[in-house]
Write a protein that binds this DNA or RNA. Structure first.
Length: 989
RNA sequence: GGGCCCGUAGCUUAGCCAGGUUAGAGCGCUCGGCUGAUAACCGGGAGGUCCUGGGUUCAAAUCCCAGCGGGCCCA
């Protein structure tokens, strides 16, 4: 049986109860069981980094996923829901270093021990995966939390090894000397995608240095740099071959710089008097030799003296500097590239720790940034500094420890992506991107990308499965643990952990008879996540079922990160793409559209929202606020609005269950024939609306327009159900008898609610479960246990009546217009009026709605005219207004009969308030006295006694002058239109 | 510097792709009303350089170009 619902909904408590019930009753497990045998729909979870706690963006990400997965499940698919965790890499290493108070790699190796360090990292990851899992569960996210894929497991590592071996076999793995970003604190190389978005504003030196031209008395190349510490590694100066360069006489010196930059540079240098002596093309300067400004301090430079000259390159711009660019191939990407062209030496006298090596002469052992001042001093002493100041500019930083990065020339391992590019782009056409322009961004990203540096000189990562023979130099790339066992010189224990330092101890047998040692590097973590689509399936050990995946969705920053790394490695491993469709989502920003950051103090924790309003509200808010692919500007007001929506939904539920239980309505045993006969136009309208809603919501879900689907549902709840339908049937359900129309209203309401909770279930999984339990399970114990086991509702086209829907809109428009007239005239809606006339071109559409139209207008007579019909006579005292559907006239005259009815309504309304205050049961009867001050009013009310008794559920009613209304039960004096009334109610028995 | 997206009332936004009513809502403000599901709700009012400037057109929030501001990505 349906029971009256709790008066108020407590989302926090209820949601917890529901989640506990899901666990104890094993609802999720049962659902998975039910799915077996259905068509597969495979989803791959982008593994969040096991950083410790989820933020709003992570929450949004999982909410989007969960909603789509729930929807697809209801659509009848066997959906895969394995979550993933990205566990390797620097962020965790940095956290563990903090915990152990480690400052350098040396300390890890000597004081802590690599084995211990790795163990701590693993422990850290395990703990934080656990914490984050709980946080995701609190959002109502259903995934296989007990069997996630985790990047540090042996099986996962083996998949990565296998992939790297494929790259090697395809000749895509190269070892090369290159200049790359290097973190001097973490002492490791960084890939270009790790530097993306990590440019921050810093203050650096702005130094103008004079490079003395060899063989000239007083001629100098004017060079600008923000990194004086790279000057010891300078080997050339570059000019643009096509730009014009000027020899400018300043005091007794001749300076060479780009002609276009003269005024800007001299303003900076504070030079006012100068004379342009000569103008030449950059090309003509090529080969001009100079004296290295630090030749004495850095004796190693003597070896490169023949290179100390002007070279030409397109990299020179007129945006900044002097047009003469100092080139240090060991410390700049572009410098390195042009250095290759001119066969310049790659001089990089800087160690992994960011300190100068012995090759840097005088500066040896100094940290590079710390050497800046000393270098400038030395230059000043020689009179080579034209100007030294500071400049604010953006400079790349380490994405974990925020140390400014340096460029360093080192030997690293690369995947030669450049060669794969055409194929990557070609295969990308198989992927369906939502929105379409995300694909444009992807293609742009791939086109501009270089080779992928995959080696890292760290500890907590997948060890590169590359061994090198110390005798013949042969590389042995291992693709699995079994292979490793076969090749190893010694026995490998059963429970080996495929991390450093254990794998480093294993030596392999080279075919030459020699012994091979592993190269010490680990893999870039983006390699880890890049193999997720098959590593999560433990391929190649197991078969690839459901690959490529049907669907993935992640934030826009992943376009050149996870989407990119996956597609690259998938082309390497399978010459295919790993998924069929991608939905890109935006970023969670603050209300002003700024990034949430601790320093701005504008961070909103998802837990905070959940604690205040519940997970359903957070979910619905995030899904309805905007399209998934746009950035979400988080607004507390927006959240509160959804909380109100939830409240209205609950109130509808309270209304439904209250009356249905009063009348013992049982939808499972209802007489359908009787119900169909009792259906009124508004009932058919509601059923038409809910079917239209199913159709619209389904269409939007299929296109990932989650926001439009959510908004349609919200509008139905607020407009159609709460504002309109319940208002219309209120009178019907108040009737105290078996009434076919009442039954029909229950049936229509029940049917709509049943459909509504299914549409809403993917968005608000908790409250819909409560509604389902109290509304459906209460009467049909054999129905599926959980709302999430139900199929998605289907549209019954035969129940959609567009003309009826339009007719109702017209009626509403006119009712609103009438209310406007009444308000202007001071006629309360509670007071009936005699006649209302409506003239419209849509007469046909509202003909069958006349009864409900009239009752909403609260008039005795309703005249509906066609467009060309004439107005009846006697409408001089009517007031008129217009709507988009036609005009409406309201009779302003109040007859004594109407006044009596109006008065009766005023009395009834006050007595209803008193009933409420007395906390009476809804159907409970009372005795009542109405004491009236005014004789005329007393007379008028005497004709309304039956109406009053019916509406207030009165057994005995006594009307009398106010002085005779002796206190009886609950009594209260009222003022109605300036006259005193004494109203008294008394409980019976 | 380049690519992509966003910019509409104090706030959150619909409309823009396929140009054509008086730019439509909600929140907030304000005045009035309704209420035995409602902690709700309804009606009136105030509040808009549709980011700016050009262009196309009979007609531009909508299409095109340039710029400004914000976001993401790249350099």
């Amino acid at each position: 049986m349906i029971k009256p619902a709790a008066k108020f909904y407590d989302p926090i408590r209820k949601e917890r109860e529901i989640r506990e019930w899901w666990e104890t009753a094993k609802i999720y497990e049962k659902l998975k069981e039910m799915q077996k045998g259905r068509p597969k729909w495979t989803f791959l979870d982008g593994p969040p980094y096991a950083s410790g706690s989820i933020h709003l963006g992570t929450a949004w990400n999982k909410i989007i996923k969960d909603t789509i997965l729930r929807y697809k499940t209801m659509r009848g698919f066997d959906v895969t829901r394995q979550p993933g965790w990205d566990c390797h890499g620097l962020p965790i290493e940095v956290k563990v270093e903090e915990k152990l108070q480690v400052k350098s790699k040396k300390e890890i190796e000597e004081r802590i021990g690599v084995a211990n360090f790795i163990q701590q990292c693993k422990q850290w990851a395990i703990e934080h995966v656990k914490i984050m899992t709980e946080q995701f569960k609190e959002l109502g996210v259903w995934m296989d939390w007990d069997s996630p894929y985790i990047t540090f497991k042996n099986e996962y590592i083996e998949s990565a090894w296998w992939t790297l071996k494929r790259a090697y076999e395809k000749n895509l793995l190269k070892r090369d000397l290159r200049v790359i970003h290097w973190c001097p604190r973490c002492e490791t190389a960084l890939a270009e995608h790790e530097v993306r978005g990590e440019y921050y504003e810093v203050s650096d030196p702005s130094l103008y240095v004079k490079f003395k031209v060899r063989g000239k008395q007083n001629e100098y190349l004017l060079v600008w740099t923000t990194t004086p510490w790279t000057l010891p590694a300078n080997v050339a100066v570059c000019v643009h071959p096509e730009f014009e360069y000027a020899r400018v006489l300043v005091n007794d010196e001749v300076l060479i710089l780009a002609r276009a930059l003269i005024s800007r540079v001299f303003l900076e240098l504070g030079v006012k008097d100068y004379q342009v002596v000569e103008v030449v093309k950059g090309k003509e300067l090529e080969g001009l030799q100079y004296e290295h400004p630090l030749i004495n301090e850095v004796p190693a430079q003597r070896e490169f003296e023949k290179h100390h000259r002007v070279i030409c390159g397109e990299l020179v711009t007129l945006e900044e500097g002097t047009g003469c660019v100092h080139i240090a191939p060991g410390h700049g990407e572009e410098d390195f590239e042009i250095g290759e062209k001119y066969q310049l030496p790659v001089f990089s006298p800087v160690g992994p720790d960011g300190k100068f090596t012995g090759e840097a002469g005088k500066y040896a052992r100094l940290y590079v940034k710390a050497a800046d001042e000393l270098i400038i001093e030395d230059l000043k002493k020689k009179g080579l500094v034209a100007k030294y100041g500071k400049i604010k500019h953006t400079y790349p930083h380490c994405w974990r420890c925020r140390t400014p990065l340096i460029f360093r020339a080192t030997e690293q391992w690369f995947l030669t992506v450049k060669e794969l590019k055409p194929r990557i782009l070609e295969l990308n056409s198989k992927v369906k991107w939502t929105p379409g322009w995300a694909a444009v961004r992807y293609v742009n990203g791939v086109e501009s990308v270089g080779d992928w540096c995959i080696s890292r000189q760290r500890y907590w990562g997948i060890p590169m499965p590359v061994w090198m023979c110390s005798s013949c130099g042969q590389l042995l790339v291992i693709g699995s643990l079994d292979e490793l066992r076969q090749m190893a010189r010694t026995e490998i224990s059963e429970d080996i952990d495929l991390h450093k330092p254990d794998v480093d101890k294993i030596e392999l047998r080279c075919p030459c008879g020699g012994s091979a040692k592993r190269i010490p590097d680990v893999l870039d973590v983006w390699f880890d996540s890049g193999v997720a689509s098959w590593a999560s399936l433990e391929h190649p050990k197991r078969e690839l079922h459901g690959w490529p995946f049907d669907f993935i969705t992640e934030g826009e920053d992943q376009i050149t990160k996870w989407f990119y790394s996956q597609q690259v490695l998938s082309v390497v491993a399978f010459d295919d793409v790993p998924y069929k469709s991608v939905l890109m989502h935006g970023f969670a920003l603050d209300e002003q559209g700024r990034k949430m950051s601790k320093s701005l103090g504008n961070v909103v924790e998802p837990q905070e929202v959940v604690r205040r309003y519940g997970a359903d509200v957070l979910r619905f808010y995030m899904l309805s606020a905007n399209p998934v692919w746009e950035d979400l500007k988080f607004s507390w007001k927006g959240v509160e609005l959804i909380y109100k929506l939830l409240n209205v939904l609950w109130n509808v539920h309270v209304f439904a269950t209250t009356y249905m239980s009063l009348d013992g309505f049982n939808p499972a045993q209802a007489d359908m024939e009787k119900i169909n006969q009792g259906l009124l136009p508004e009932d058919r309208w509601l059923i038409s609306r809910i079917n239209s809603l199913v159709s619209k919501v389904t269409k939007e879900m299929e296109e990932y327009n989650l926001h439009l689907a959510a908004r349609e549902i919200a509008e139905f709840i607020l407009e159609d159900l709460s504002r309109r339908y319940i208002k219309l049937i209120r009178g019907r359900v108040w009737i105290e008898k078996e009434d076919p129309h009442k039954l029909a209203a229950y049936a229509a309401l029940y049917q709509s609610m049943h459909v509504l909770i299914r549409l809403l279930a993917p968005f608000m999984p908790h409250v819909t479960e409560v509604l389902y339990c109290e509304l459906v399970r209460a009467v049909s114990p054999n129905a599926p246990e959980s709302v999430h086991m139900l199929p998605w509702p289907t549209v019954d086209q035969s129940q959609i009546d567009r003309k009826l829907e339009e007719g109702m809109s017209i009626v509403s428009r006119f009712v609103e217009a009438a209310a406007r007239i009444r308000q202007e005239a001071g006629l309360k809606l509670r007071w009936p009026v005699q006649t209302i006339v409506v003239r419209t071109g849509k007469k046909e559409l509202i003909r069958e709605l006349k009864d409900l139209f009239q009752s909403q207008l609260n008039c005795k007579e309703l005249v509906i005219l066609g467009e060309n019909d004439k107005l009846p006579r006697d409408t001089e005292e009517f007031r008129k207004t217009s709507t988009e559907y036609g005009e409406i006239w309201v009779d302003m005259r109040m007859s004594p009969e109407l006044k009596a009815e109006a008065l009766a309504r005023e009395v009834v309304r006050r007595m209803q308030m008193m009933r409420k205050e007395m906390d009476l049961e809804m159907e409970e009867r009372v005795d009542a006295i109405v004491g009236v001050e005014n004789r005329d009013d007393l007379y008028m009310l005497s004709g309304q006694q039956e109406y009053i008794k019916r509406e207030v559920r009165i057994r005995n009613l006594r009307l009398c002058p106010i002085e005779e209304a002796k206190e009886k039960g609950y009594s209260k004096e009222w003022n109605i239109d300036g006259k005193r009334y004494q109203l008294a109610l008394k409980k019976i028995g």
